[in-house]
Simulated assay, not measured.
Amino acid sequence: MEGLVPKDTRDASDVSTDPAKAAIGKTAVLYRMALPDHLCPSGQKARWLLERQGYIVDDRLFRTRAEVDAFKAAHGVKTTPQAWIDGTRVGGYTDLRKKLTGWDPSRTTYTPVIFLFAVAALTAVALSIGFLGAITWQTLGWFISVSMILLGMQKLRDIEGFTTMFLNYDLLARRWVPYAYVYPFVETGAGILMTGMLLTWLSAPAALIVASIGAVSVFKAVYIDRRTLKCACVGGNSNVPLGFVSLTENLMMIGMAVVMLWNIF
């Protein structure tokens, strides 16, 4: 492995200087690994974050594992990078991000859903213009079907995490656990078939059934039982609240399925 990873070309500061005394004003002290076989990604991100926040970085690079081990023992830490600001050790990249940006990993957010639907919308527009030469009603259909694919893939990415969250509210899954594992495959598969406008007799009823169960389940959990839950719509361990987003997902699937069934009968 030696020599496969290039060394960081920036000069390392004197590592013997007390980091608490060196980290004053807009100067931050950062210890990170730049070994012959490992240039620490978190260390690079920590330096970039500090510089973006206007700090001059006193960059202290470890070139050997022995230096890393000695540093950990001397400062009583288990990991690197480690950063100091205003004479105080902040910690690693995650701690630094929390302090400098106010990032909170447990905070409720709709960001994943916004990005997902934006990608689906742009894909639908690209398909419409590329194949039809204009934005039509089919664009909406593609937006829904592509959204189904992307949402299904998010669930399949961590199916255990998804099923755990799904079992909190889905009425059928709570009676028959295997349904929680089947659901993302049905959603993804139906989305693929709907995008290609194939096997409508199969994809539309499948989407209609799972979406109807989902819509009733979400409505009951949120608007009748008044429960505060996290939504499994974008996969397990998300911080998207259960409610409007999941209900919209299911209603879109229902609408798409109904229209497609109407067109074939």
Rank of each mutant, 00 (worst) to 15 (best):
V5T: 10
V5P: 14
K7G: 02
K7Y: 03
T9M: 10
R10W: 03
S13M: 13
S13E: 14
S16H: 12
A22F: 13
A23Q: 10
I24H: 09
G25V: 12
G25W: 00
A28P: 14
V29G: 01
V29W: 05
L30Y: 09
R32V: 04
A34F: 14
A34C: 08
L35D: 03
D37H: 14
L39C: 09
L39H: 13
P41M: 11
P41R: 07
S42V: 00
G43C: 02
K45I: 11
K45R: 02
K45M: 10
A46L: 14
W48T: 14
W48V: 05
L49V: 11
L49M: 07
R52W: 03
I56C: 15
V57W: 04
R60C: 15
L61Y: 06
L61V: 09
R63P: 14
R63V: 13
T64P: 14
A66K: 15
V68L: 15
V77T: 10
V77K: 03
T79A: 09
T80Q: 14
A83W: 08
W84T: 09
I85W: 04
D86N: 14
G87E: 10
R89A: 08
V90H: 09
D95P: 15
K99T: 08
L100W: 03
L100G: 10
S106V: 13
R107P: 14
T109D: 02
Y110D: 05
T111C: 10
V113K: 09
L116G: 03
F117W: 15
L122Q: 06
S128F: 06
I129E: 01
I129T: 00
I129W: 02
L132C: 11
A134P: 15
I135G: 09
W137F: 03
W137I: 07
Q138F: 09
